[in-house]
Simulated assay, not measured.
Amino acid sequence: MTIPALPSYAMPTADEVAANRVDWCIDPNRAVLLIHDMQDYFIDKYDRTQAPIPALIQAIGELRRAADLAGIPVVYTAQPTDQPDSDRALLNDFWGPGLPGAPEQVNVVDGLTPADHDTVLTKWRYSAFQRSPLRQMMSDQGRDQLIITGVYAHIGCMASALEAFMQDVQPFFIVDALADFSREEHLMAINYVARRCGVSLDRHTALAAIGQPASHSAPDTLGWLRQEVAPLIEQSPEDIDPDDNLLFMGLDSMRMMTLAEQLTRQGRPVSFMALAENPTLNDWVALLDAA
């Protein structure tokens, strides 16, 4: 048994998160950024050209750059290619050989390569705290907050959040800087953290707390829109003609309204009516560039 091929899905948004039970706020002087298991082995389970992967890598990249500017330590977890059965243990029963069966996929994905001053922890179990010096490192630096990003939200990321809580570290789960086996499991994980052990928030809120503005668009607005819209109409991004009427292709009003709300939160205010009256990607590019 191994990790299956994973479906594309629309990245959850902050308005889908259950109300956080606590009002903790990220403090750059107390926080550590965790980039969890963003290795080729795990990301290659998806179609990298489709949501949520392009948005995931962009969001983590923004947080990583902001952390550097704010002096927040960045910690990566990465599984090794050498995992004797005595070390891998019960993981074999659930997931097979893992990375030892695909050593060529050990690297962190392009665009998120660790810098020389970052810490890369060897990952042995779901939680980043297990068999690692993470808690001691944080204690030595006087830090007791963990900003969690990466894959997979309902497995290692959620386990790390729960163990952080149990070790008196405040976990912050970044809704749109995580990915999972499915949208349903992604939502389950972010809602569990919000209700039981931490704070779930989007990257824009996190960046504001860190003191850095978010990048409100991908370099290619049309390409970014294709990535966002494709899973909503169950099409491949490259199959969407910029002049196609998206309503005729199956984009319903509820999904369009959610997209309008997401864009507005990103600092590109556009109304649902404006999108509905001009339902092509080319029209939306013009609207967003103007916004």
Rank of each mutant, 00 (worst) to 15 (best):
N29Y: 00
S182K: 01
Y41P: 05
F181A: 05
A10G: 11
P171N: 11
Q136I: 08
G267V: 11
T149Y: 07
L259C: 00
D289K: 14
A208N: 14
M158V: 09
T258H: 13
P269T: 03
S217K: 13
G156N: 06
I43K: 10
P84M: 09
G198Y: 03
A291T: 14
Y192M: 13
T149K: 10
A208W: 01
L281C: 07
G71L: 08
L288M: 04
I57C: 06
Y152T: 07
M188P: 00
F42Q: 07
P80Q: 07
F248N: 14
I72Q: 03
D118C: 03
E62M: 15
D239N: 15
Q170N: 03
S253N: 10
E238Q: 15
D283A: 15
Q235V: 10
F129D: 03
T113G: 09
H117L: 05
I57S: 04
T221D: 02
A276V: 03
R30K: 15
A115G: 01
R226L: 13
D116G: 00
L287T: 09
L56W: 04
E185F: 13
G211N: 05
F181I: 07
S271D: 08
L112T: 04
I60Y: 13
F272V: 10
V22Y: 00
L275T: 03
A51R: 13
T2I: 10
T221H: 02
R268G: 02
V193S: 12
T122A: 13
A208R: 14
P103N: 04
